[in-house]
Write a protein that binds this DNA or RNA. Structure first.
Lengths: 253, 253
DNA sequence: AATGGACGTTGCACGCACTGCAACGGCCCT
DNA sequence: AGGGCCGTTGCAGTGCGTGCAACGTCCATT
């Protein structure tokens, strides 16, 4: 809508890939160098980009700090965190919390496994939306039209032989997840990693977040992991209750 | 420099404090509602802000993802991480890595303590610049003029009785840190928490990052923590060597 | 030492894109 | 049914962003 702002913001993902100099930025934006310079200067004043010693630009500290603040202000995160920790203490595995936002699902909290073998993930990272158990729960709750539209725009990378292959299979899986109220990812992202997940619901019943327990199958078998499902669901329900104001932290202990 | 972009970027810290509706944003910016709307729309298109169900705006997922990517691309972080992990394995305490950027010092990596008692900190969070051991190291290396100018602009909150009280005391402390080549924070931020820190230097000898070990004094005494100093310095030197290309990862093991 | 090229920076005139205004429409509350 | 609040849209004026060209600096080349 606003050309200037649009151009300025387009610089950010461009720099996220790695540092770039003025000429490169101008070229990629398709504008004159002087224009790019002014945009970069404005971004710089706000700390969004940083000019390193070789004069090239990269993303700045304020951006990181802002993202930090944004995450801390997600109240669902604050409420859920102690529950995630407790679940981790009970089962020992990696626990994730994720939300859906504008065609993406991203992790907003994580408690690391107590076992030496850990899975790679990072808070803020968009998840593999077509296979992750938490993604299935979040997408399954979208209005049908939106769900179908989204499924069509997605790509379906075959991380493993068990990855969701295409849109119809995905929609079918979402339907199943929607009915049973929980989801799994059995080696769909990484061959050796299994997850079980349950939804966190707001006062109106809509799914506002999803949490999962993940473990490599060298540590626990699929059956053992599935046996944790009741515990995972109880935890998710406890978070739901607290989030929607039905219960307090003390009650749900 | 660019009015439009300047206004748009000013919206972000405003939303970081918490969700706001169109009218609030327009007021805070001092512009007409329609102007604010267009700026917000542009930010929205880029995923920088998100419109929640009550129509209020808050910071968006792309911002978090960008910050994420920015951090992963900091090469110092990548190089240092295994060293931080190893140091944590050796001493068991919380290990931090921090960099200086534009009047701020922020944590860019962290390995959690193995002890149950942990300190509160978070990657991406700006540190208490006037008391943190890592901040002292990073600021002590600035050119004198810049250092003095910065010291004057800072505020000196008295977190505890041992916090740095004012600019002269801070500059004196920085001078000391600069000469001895390491730094401490003994209860200056939180009464019960002590830290020792050492600098990571680039090929030209300038300090590019700083790392610290933190522990509550209920776990280890100040003396015991200070006894870790040689280990911390060795680790920092190993990172320096690898970062400046003098050694490789294998050599420094 | 001189020359050329690449890159960042600046001042300026043009004209487009951003701005503020006013009017509309939906929603909630009285 | 009416009034107030808030988000949204179309429009006209002009402030502001744009591209151009020229300059300065640094580095590599001869």
């Amino acid at each position: 809508m606003s050309q200037t702002v649009d151009r300025a913001l387009s610089i950010l993902p461009l720099l996220a890939a790695g540092p770039a100099d003025l000429g490169q930025v101008a070229d990629r934006l398709g504008v004159h160098k002087s224009t790019a310079l002014r945009l970069l200067r404005t971004l710089h004043e706000h700390g969004m980009v940083y000019r390193q010693s070789d004069q090239r630009y990269r993303l700045g500290a304020r951006l990181i700090a802002l993202a930090q603040e944004a995450m801390e202000n997600l109240d669902i995160r604050e409420i859920a965190h102690p529950h995630l920790v407790r679940l981790n203490e009970q089962c020992g595995h990696t626990v994730h919390l994720a939300v859906y936002e504008e065609d993406e699902v991203l992790y907003i909290d994580k408690v690391e496994s107590r076992y030496p073998v850990r899975m790679y993930s990072r808070i803020g990272k968009p998840v593999a939306i077509t296979v992750a158990a938490v993604a299935k729960l979040l997408l399954a709750d979208l209005p049908e039209a939106e769900r179908r539209a989204l499924a069509d725009t997605l790509e379906y990378p075959l991380y493993t032989a068990r990855s969701t292959p295409n849109a119809p299979a995905f929609l079918k899986e979402l339907e199943r997840v929607r009915e049973q109220g929980w989801a799994t990812d059995l080696g769909g992202h990484e061959e050796s990693i299994n997850c079980v997940a349950a939804p966190v619901r707001g006062a109106d019943g809509r799914v506002v977040a999803a949490m999962s327990v993940s473990a490599p199958n060298v540590v626990v078998t699929t059956e053992e992991l599935l046996a944790l499902l009741p515990l995972v669901r109880r935890t998710a329900d406890a978070i739901s209750g607290e989030y929607s104001g039905r219960t307090t932290a003390k009650e749900s202990v």
